[in-house]
Amino acid sequence: MSAEPDQIIYVVDDDEALRDSLVWLLESNGYRVSAYESAEAFLSGYSAQWIGCLVLDVRMPGMSGLELFEELGRRRCTLPVIFITGHGDVPMAVSALKKGAVDFIEKPFSDRDMLGLIEQCLTTEREQRAKRRQEADTARRLAQLTQREREVLDLIVVGKLNKQIADVLGISIKTVEVHRARVMEKMGVHSLAELVQHVVSAEPASPR
Rank of each mutant, 00 (worst) to 15 (best):
M1C: 02
V90S: 06
W50E: 04
M184V: 11
L153M: 07
W24M: 15
F83T: 00
G116S: 11
I82R: 01
A101R: 00
R133H: 08
V11R: 05
R132W: 03
G88H: 08
V23A: 09
A41C: 09
V157S: 09
I84D: 02
I51W: 01
L54G: 02
G30F: 00
A202Y: 06
I9Q: 00
E127S: 15
L72D: 05
R208V: 15
A166P: 06
D14K: 00
Q7D: 04
A130R: 13
Q7G: 07
Y10W: 08
L66R: 06
P61V: 08
T124A: 09
T124H: 14
V55F: 00
L18S: 13
P5H: 04
A17E: 10
K174P: 07
S201D: 15
E177T: 05
D15C: 05
T175A: 15
I8V: 09
R208F: 00
E203A: 14
G86S: 09
K99M: 15
T85L: 03
K131M: 15
I118R: 01
A96I: 05
P207A: 03
L97A: 07
D154T: 02
G52W: 03
D113A: 09
V178H: 06
V33D: 01
G30P: 04
V176I: 14
V168Q: 05
L68C: 10
D137Y: 10
I165G: 08
V158S: 03
W24S: 06
R141E: 03
R141W: 05
E16Y: 11
M60Y: 00
R180A: 09
L56M: 01
Y31P: 01
P207N: 02
L79I: 12
F42A: 05
S47R: 08
F83N: 06
V176H: 01
H198Y: 13
H87S: 04
A39E: 05
A181N: 06
R32I: 13
Y46A: 14
V189K: 10
Q197A: 09
G65Q: 07
P5N: 07
S28G: 05
Q147S: 06
A3M: 07
D57N: 07
D113M: 05
D57Q: 01
A136V: 12
C77T: 15
T123F: 14
R74A: 09
H87W: 12
I118T: 02
V168N: 02
L18C: 14
V33Q: 02
N29G: 11
R19E: 01
M92D: 11
E127D: 13
G62R: 00
V168K: 07
Q7F: 07
P5C: 11
T175D: 12
A136M: 11
S201I: 02
V200Q: 14
T124E: 10
V189G: 12
E67Q: 06
F69R: 03
S110F: 12
H87C: 05
F69S: 08
A205V: 13
G100E: 06
S172T: 13
F83E: 00
G45S: 12
L153V: 04
S47C: 09
K163C: 02
